[in-house]
C-alpha cells in the first residue's frame, strides 16, 4: 500500500519533470555578441510572432559568453563577433555542427554633437575631444580593428591617455548614451538603431580593413532544444533576417 503510494508519487514527479522539459523546449537561449543585440531583438520579435517558441537573448562580450559556454552555460546558439572564440568553442567540443557567417559588421566613430569636422583622424586630434570610448582590443574585434586603425593613422600615442576601455561594444554604447565620452568607436548597429541618441556617426573605412564576420554556432545541449535551435538558425539565415541585418547597416554574405 505504502509502496504503491510512493510509486504513484514517483510517477507524478516524473510526469511533472517531463512537462517541465517539454515546456522548456518551447524556448531557447541565444548568447549574442553585444553589437548584434539590436538587430537580434528585431529578429526575435519576428520569429516569436511566426512560431510558438520563445527566444531569450543573452547579450555579452563574445569572450565572456565563450567562457560561460565552456563552463557549461545552457545556451542553444552562440552568435559571436569574433571567429577566434568560435574556434575555441569548437575546440572544446561544445559545438553541434559547423559555424556559419550571418553578416559582417563595420566600425563607426561616434562623435558628440558640438564637435566639428568630418575626418575622423582630424576630429580625434582636437583638444575638445578629451575621452574616447573603445571596446577592449583583447576582448572585442571592433576594438581590435579600431586600435589597428589608430596605429595605422599614427594616432596611437597621441590619443593613448584619452582612451576609455569598455569590455564590449555594449559597454561602449553605454558610455555614449551617458555622454561620458566625447567620441567612441562603436558598431554600425548603433548608428542604425532608434536608440542612437545625439551626435554623428562616421564610417571608418580603409582598403586594408576587412568587415568583421558575425558567426553563428549551434551548441551541444542536454535539453531538447535542438529542434527550435535549428529552426531559429534557418530563420537567421532567411530573407526576413537578412533584411533586418541590412537595415542595421550590416553587410551580407553572398547568398548561397
Amino acid at each position: 500500500m505504502v509502496n504503491r503510494d510512493i510509486a504513484t508519487r514517483i510517477h507524478i514527479t516524473i510526469f511533472l519533470m517531463l512537462l517541465c522539459c517539454s515546456m522548456m523546449a518551447q524556448s531557447i537561449k541565444v548568447a549574442v555578441a553585444s553589437n548584434l543585440l539590436l538587430p537580434m531583438q528585431a529578429i526575435e520579435k519576428k520569429f516569436e510572432s511566426k512560431y510558438p517558441y520563445e527566444v531569450e537573448l543573452i547579450p555579452g562580450a563574445s569572450g565572456t559568453l565563450t567562457s560561460q559556454i565552456i563552463n557549461g552555460a545552457p545556451y542553444e546558439i552562440f552568435v559571436s563577433a569574433d571567429d577566434k572564440y568560435i574556434d575555441e568553442v569548437i575546440d572544446k567540443d561544445k559545438a553541434h555542427g559547423g559555424p556559419q557567417i550571418i553578416c559582417f559588421g563595420t566600425v563607426y566613430l561616434w562623435v558628440k554633437s558640438g564637435i566639428a569636422g568630418d575626418d575622423p583622424a582630424a576630429i580625434l586630434k582636437q583638444e575638445k575631444v578629451k575621452s574616447i570610448g573603445l571596446a577592449h582590443p583583447d576582448l572585442a574585434p571592433y576594438g581590435k580593428l579600431s586600435r589597428d586603425w589608430l596605429e595605422v593613422k599614427q594616432l596611437g600615442v597621441l590619443v593613448h591617455d584619452k582612451i576609455v576601455y569598455g569590455t564590449s561594444i555594449g559597454q561602449v554604447n553605454q558610455y555614449i548614451a551617458a555622454g561620458s565620452v566625447d567620441a567612441a568607436f562603436t558598431s554600425n548597429s548603433l548608428k542604425f538603431s532608434q536608440k542612437k541618441g545625439e551626435g554623428k556617426f562616421i564610417k571608418i573605412e580603409e582598403i586594408w580593413m576587412d568587415p568583421i564576420p558575425q558567426t553563428m554556432l549551434i551548441l551541444k545541449t542536454d535539453g531538447p532544444g535542438l529542434f527550435v535551435a535549428t529552426l531559429f538558425k534557418d530563420f537567421l539565415l532567411g530573407k526576413e533576417s537578412r533584411r533586418i541585418f541590412q537595415d542595421f547597416g550590416y553587410e551580407l554574405p553572398v547568398a548561397e
Binding site: 543585440l37 547579450p59 564590449s168 553605454q174
Partner: peptide
C-alpha cells in the same frame, strides 16, 4: 546590468 547592455536605460 542586462538592461544597460540592451540600452533599455
Amino acid at each position: 546590468f542586462h538592461e544597460m547592455e540592451a540600452m533599455n536605460y
